[in-house]
Write a protein that binds this DNA or RNA. Structure first.
Lengths: 233, 233
DNA sequence: TCAAAAGTGTTCACGATACACCCATGG
DNA sequence: CCATGGGTGTATCGTGAACACTTTTGA
C-alpha cells in the first residue's frame, strides 16, 4: 500500500480477504454476415450449460491491457487488433462462492482472422445478438459491449477494425448496417466517409456478380473521432 | 476462480503473487470560482511532498461503486453526488515496490457541500488545473479525469452536479465556461438550455448587485444525453 | 441482352451561430 | 440617477437528410 492508509469508512460491511481479480475479454468479429463473439464453456459443476467470456491470467509483471493484447493475438493468429478497456465489474453477487472483480476489455478482430487453433477448440465464435446462456453477469457485460460497439461506430472509425485490410464501400456499409441494425443511404454514406478522408482508394477492384467494385484501404493516420454535438454553444 | 482455468498465454512474463487492488476516487467541486479536486498527502517516506487521490478500502462484501459512494458521502457530508467509473489502471511501473491495480472512480460534489470534517484534515481541496506534485501516475489520472469532465459537459447535463439545488442561469453559464475554458454566448446558452427542458424555473429570485436573477432547478427526469453527431447517416 | 451490383448530385429543412439593446434593482 | 448584472429576438449559414437514375461487368 502506498502513501497514507485507507481512509476509514463507517460502512458496516464485512471486511475479509481481498476479492479475486480476473481479466476477461469480449471480442467481436464478423463471420458469415453475422456479428460473433468468442465464448468459452463454463465449468459445468458451477454453471451447467453456460458460456463465458475468455479468461486470461493476471500477471503481476504486465499491464492487463498488454496481457489481453498478446494473449488475444496469439489465440486468434492476427498481427493487430483493436483493444480498449470496457469496464471493471465488482460486487458480492457476481459469483456464488467468491468475491470477484473482473476487469473486462473490449476487442475487435478483423474478418480475415485465421480460425482458432486446435488446442483452443473449447473456444467458439457464437452469435453476439443471440448468444447461448451466459454464466454470472456475462449477459450484462455482453449487452454493454454491444452498446459500446454501436456507440463507437457512430462517432469513430472503429468499424474498419472488423474488416480485412482492403474492402469495398458496399462491404463497409453492410458492416455498419449489420451492427447498427438499420439501413443506410448509399450516397450519403459514401459522401461522408470519402469526405472524411478516413479511407483511401487502392488500384484494385473486386469482381463479383455485377460491376466490379473499387477496393479501399483504411488510413490509420486519419483523425477518426468526430466531435460530439455539443449541448451548449 | 469460476469455470474453466485461465487460457494459457505464452508470454514470458514473471508470474508471482496477484497484484494489489486499490480503490481511488477523483472528486471535483467548484470553490471560489475555481475547479478543485480532493487530494490526500502521500507517504513522505515514499513520495516526499506529493499528493494523491483519496484511497478507500476494497471490501469483499460490497461493490466498489457502493464503497466509493458511501465513503464519499460521509466524507463530504452531502446527501447525493454524481459518481461513475473512470478507469482501471494497471502495470508494473506504477508503483516503486509493488504491482498495483487501481480502480478509479470519478465524482462531482455540489457547490454547497459542507467543509470537510476535522478528522479528515489531511484531505485538502486543491486547484484541479494547477495541482501540487502528484505521486505515481496520478497526474495522468487527473488529466484523464479533466478530459472526461469536459467531454461529458458537452454531451450531457453533468454540469448541474457541481451546483447547488437552485442556481441562476449566469451561475450555470459561468460553471460551463470555467470548465470548458472558453466564453459562451449568453443568448444562445439560455435558449439551448431552456429549450432542452433540462431545467425548470422556480418562483424565487436571487438578489445581487444588479437586477435579481431568477433561480432555476435541474429536472432530474430530463433526458440529458445528447446524441453525438453520427459519422455516418 | 439481361441481371446484379457499383457508382454518382441536387434540393430542402433545420439547427448552430453571430450579434446589440432594454430592464430591474440597490446604493 | 447611475452602475451592475439580468434578460430578450432575428438573420444568416452550414450541415444533415431525402431521393432515382446511369454504368459496368458476367452469365
Amino acid at each position: 500500500m502506498s502513501g497514507i492508509s485507507n481512509l476509514s469508512c463507517n460502512n458496516e460491511v464485512e471486511r475479509g480477504p481481498q476479492p479475486h481479480i480476473e481479466l476477461r475479454v469480449v471480442v467481436f468479429t464478423l463471420h458469415q454476415d453475422h456479428l460473433q463473439t468468442l465464448l468459452s464453456p463454463s465449468d459445468p459443476a458451477i454453471f451447467p450449460n453456460c458460456w463465458e467470456f475468455p479468461n486470461f491470467p493476471v500477471l503481476p509483471g504486465q499491464a492487463l491491457e498488454q496481457t489481453a493484447e498478446s494473449c488475444l493475438k496469439e489465440l486468434l493468429n492476427v498481427p493487430e487488433l483493436y483493444l480498449e478497456q470496457l469496464f471493471t465489474y465488482s460486487g458480492p453477487k457476481r459469483h456464488p462462492t467468491q468475491s470477484l472483480i473482473s476487469v473486462v476489455y473490449f476487442a475487435l478482430s478483423p474478418l480475415d482472422s485465421h480460425p482458432l487453433e486446435e488446442r483452443k477448440a473449447s473456444l467458439l465464435w457464437q452469435p453476439a445478438n443471440t448468444p447461448p446462456p451466459l454464466a454470472m453477469d456475462h449477459d450484462e457485460i455482453l449487452s454493454y459491449a454491444l452498446r459500446r460497439l454501436r456507440y463507437k461506430l457512430e462517432y469513430s472509425a472503429v468499424g474498419f477494425e472488423l474488416l480485412p485490410e482492403t474492402f469495398t464501400l458496399s462491404e463497409l456499409q453492410k458492416t455498419y448496417e449489420m451492427i447498427l441494425g438499420e439501413t443506410l443511404d448509399k450516397r450519403n454514406f459514401r459522401r461522408r466517409i470519402l469526405q472524411g478522408g478516413i479511407i483511401e482508394p487502392t488500384e484494385d477492384y473486386r469482381s463479383g456478380e455485377g460491376r466490379p467494385a473499387r477496393l479501399y484501404r483504411y488510413r490509420p493516420d486519419a483523425v477518426a473521432e468526430v466531435k460530439a454535438r455539443r449541448l451548449f454553444p
